[in-house]
Computed example of a mutant assay.
Amino acid sequence: MDMEHTTEPIIGNLLNDDIFSNSIQGLLLLKKGTILNQTHIELLEKHLVDPFKVIPSFVSNSISVEQTYHSLLNEVKKVFSHILKREEEGVEQLLSHFSKMVELCLHDFSTLDIIHKHISQSDYIYQHSINVGIISALIGNVLGYSKKNCQLLGQMGLFHDIGMLTITPSILKKEGKLTEKEYKEIQKHTMLGKSILFSITQLDILISRTALLHHERINGKGYPCNRFEKDIPFMIQIVSVADAFNSMCTSDLYKDKKTYFEAIDELISEAYGNTLNPAIVIPFTQFIMRKQLFKKVKLNNNETAEIIFIHQNEPHLPLVRLKNNYVDLRKASPLKITSLA
């Protein structure tokens, strides 16, 4: 795999302030005036300090991400309408703009909060597409993919569900349980999406394959082809995880929005159940949970606790401080985290 460090843009920047550890109280890591190099960045990450947050020019990225996201939405709607007619108008420009969005998101770990802020039911498919693209790229970054492949993952996620726009609107907007016939109709979006995207010459061939295979599961119980893990490209399995996670974290006609903790718990259950690849799910959920270290959380018994330590293979069941005691949630079933306090 072609490896590149996404921290390259901040190497060589000057620190304006002293930087202290987030894991050891009061420990000075780097002094004001230090010029950042790769060793410094590794030190910061070891002590749970986001390297991008120590550089002033990156602090305002969350604002940039939100503005870029909303301007991108209208462009996605317009270009998708052309693609549905097998027209390539606007595709190249959309890829360029989406690439900038992904680049912003790889430098701003608050992205997940931003993209899940305002989900409109009328724009659900378009927002879901953008979100899955962003999350796919983030997962690629967590797994150590190159910038180029993170961008490709973003594009795979962006276009994965375009076939849903061909499904009869009355089925998509139906409240309540779908009939078996209606569910079979929705399943056709994978094959329809693949056919549409395959005709767009500006898109990588893996993008149309993603539209076809993103609902396949590693145990062979997905659709439309009942493929097993070895027959599903790993990058498409990444998009499947991103697709599942974003669906859990957004509400629609069928379900309520889950918190990140509830979604992580469900993702890991699916990984243990051999539907989603644990080699993707575990690193991704570790990444999210590490961002929650030392935060106050609500448990399912309504008590408030503080996350103290994240276990490597069971990140959804961390060590927490509950009142004056430490509780390992791995050993405290049925206690689990439900939300931020």
Rank of each mutant, 00 (worst) to 15 (best):
M1P: 00
E4M: 09
T6H: 05
T7F: 12
E8P: 00
E8A: 01
P9C: 00
I10S: 00
I10Q: 01
I11V: 08
G12Q: 03
L15D: 03
D18P: 02
F20Y: 15
G26L: 07
L28G: 11
L28Q: 09
L29N: 08
K31A: 14
K31I: 08
K32T: 11
T34N: 08
E42L: 13
H47Q: 12
P51M: 13
P56K: 08
F58N: 08
S60G: 13
Q67N: 05
L72W: 01
L73D: 02
N74Q: 13
N74E: 11
V76M: 04
K77D: 02
K77Q: 11
K77S: 03
K78P: 00
V79A: 05
V79K: 04
S81T: 03
S81C: 01
S81A: 13
E89I: 14
E92L: 15
Q93K: 15
L95G: 07
S96D: 11
H97K: 13
S99R: 15
M101F: 15
L104E: 02
C105T: 09
H107P: 00
D108P: 05
S110A: 13
L112D: 12
L112A: 05
D113M: 10
I115H: 02
I115D: 00
S120K: 15
S120Q: 12
Q121G: 12
D123Y: 12
I125R: 07
Y126L: 11
Q127Y: 13
I130L: 14
V132C: 07
I134H: 06
I134K: 06
G140K: 09
G140L: 10
N141D: 15
V142H: 07
G144C: 14
K147A: 09
K148F: 12
C150E: 09
L152D: 08
Q155F: 13
G157F: 04
G163A: 10
L165I: 07
T166P: 03
I167C: 09
T168V: 07
T168Y: 06
T168P: 01
E175Y: 11
G176P: 02
K181V: 10
K184H: 08
Q187D: 02
Q187L: 05
L192C: 04
K194C: 11
I196C: 02
L197R: 02
F198M: 09
S199R: 11
L203Y: 04
D204T: 04
I205P: 10
I205S: 12
I205K: 13
H214I: 04
R217V: 07
K221V: 02
K221R: 11
N226P: 05
D231Q: 14
P233V: 03
F234M: 09
M235L: 15
I236N: 01
I238D: 00
V239F: 09
C249Q: 12
T250G: 06
S251I: 01
Y254N: 11
K255Q: 11
A263W: 02
I264W: 04
I264L: 04
E266M: 03
E270S: 10
A271I: 07
A271W: 09
N277T: 10
F287A: 05
I288P: 03
F294H: 12
F294C: 08
H311K: 14
N313R: 12
P315I: 03
L317W: 07
L317I: 02
P318R: 07
L319W: 05
L319K: 05
R321L: 15
R321V: 10
K323W: 03
N325Q: 15
S333A: 14
T338D: 02
A341T: 08
